[in-house]
Design a protein around this nucleic acid. Structure first.
Length: 297
DNA sequence: CCATGACCCTGTAAGC
DNA sequence: TGCTTACAGGGTCATG
């Protein structure tokens, strides 16, 4: 499910329950996801308190009060659900009703929320492309997953000048360049397609054609940067996209998929006013690209 | 440097 | 109804 807007939606769903919560028990229902859990995964977490629930690109980052960071990546099919009591916790030994294991529930965090309420956070991942790892806070920036990571697509760092500079000598197709996490981290297949359509730029165009010889940003690079930021922000506001029934942590559905202009719309009419084209599908670097051949140049 | 394909794993939908 | 195939939001690795 996970591009940046979906991961951010998950983060916002987890934060009220996990920020300040104590990890009373960590239950692993198998030895690995995509990678094995570290040997000390459980013992490093149990009894500790979560001090913040953050995100970098498509990675969730939970700060633990023993100077470790719990990194969680959702892969293609990972999701969380929260089981919390709706009634105020009673003093003493209040506990949640026994939970029901669903297929592909792999990790269960048994929490005591900052408020004192008991809570379970359950990670489910049919394809197991997701992963979790503990990294020392002091080594985080140097870790292989983060050291070459590009800028966030939302925020001030992304503008036409950044794109023009980064793409200066890039012969790769624009679509591939935008998927490169070393350029912009967190952009995935869907939102790249959507941003290119909004900007009226062909996914096949060489990335370097957005950069001027002088190195100054072109109108195209400016336009693209604006549309990337807009589409990501709009998707976050909409609670992400609910493909394949992916749900938010409270079980509700995001609805941004209803606003896809090109993704999964092969053969349908282009939605740009005055454009008579229809949406095509092609494969670039092994992934589907959806685009309008008539208005994306 | 770049492009392509295989791979990790399971579920779903389409086609026969 | 069953079987087979293609495909899916990510990311890494080997190969040419």
């Amino acid at each position: 499910m996970p591009e940046l807007p979906e991961v951010e939606t998950v983060r916002r769903g987890l934060e009220p329950h996990m920020d300040g919560a104590k990890l009373e028990r960590v239950e692993l229902r198998r030895a690995d996801l995509r990678f094995p859990f570290g040997e000390n995964f459980i013992t490093s977490l149990e009894g500790q308190t979560i001090t913040s629930v953050g995100r970098r690109a498509k990675y969730l980052q939970l700060d633990i009060d023993n100077n470790l960071v719990l990194i969680m990546h959702l892969g293609m099919s990972g999701s969380f659900r929260v089981e919390a009591s709706s009634v105020a916790a009673q003093p003493g030994n209040f506990t949640l009703p026994k939970g029901v294991h669903e297929k592909h529930d792999h990790v269960i965090f048994h929490l005591r929320e900052a408020s004192g309420q008991p809570c379970r956070v359950i990670y489910n991942d049919p394809r197991r492309f997701g992963y979790m790892a503990l990294i020392a806070r002091s080594n985080l920036e140097d870790h292989k997953w983060f050291k070459d990571m590009g800028i966030e697509p939302i925020g001030n760092a992304l503008d036409g000048a950044y794109l023009a500079t980064k793409f200066q000598n890039k012969k790769a197709p624009l679509k591939s360049a935008l998927l490169d996490q070393k350029m912009i981290a967190g952009l995935g297949n869907i939102y790249v397609c959507e941003a290119l359509w909004r900007a009226g730029l062909a996914p096949t165009r060489q990335a370097k054609t957005l950069a001027q010889k002088s190195g100054k940003p072109t109108a195209m690079a400016d336009r693209l940067s604006v549309h990337i930021r807009d589409v990501i922000n709009e998707a976050i506001e909409a609670g992400g996209s609910s493909l394949k029934d992916h749900r938010q942590t409270d079980g509700s559905l995001g609805y941004f998929q209803h606003r896809f202009a090109v993704y999964d719309r092969e053969g349908e009419d282009c939605l740009k006013s005055d454009c008579k084209g229809e949406i095509s599908r092609m494969v670039q670097s092994g992934r589907s690209t959806f685009y309008c051949g008539a208005c994306q140049k």
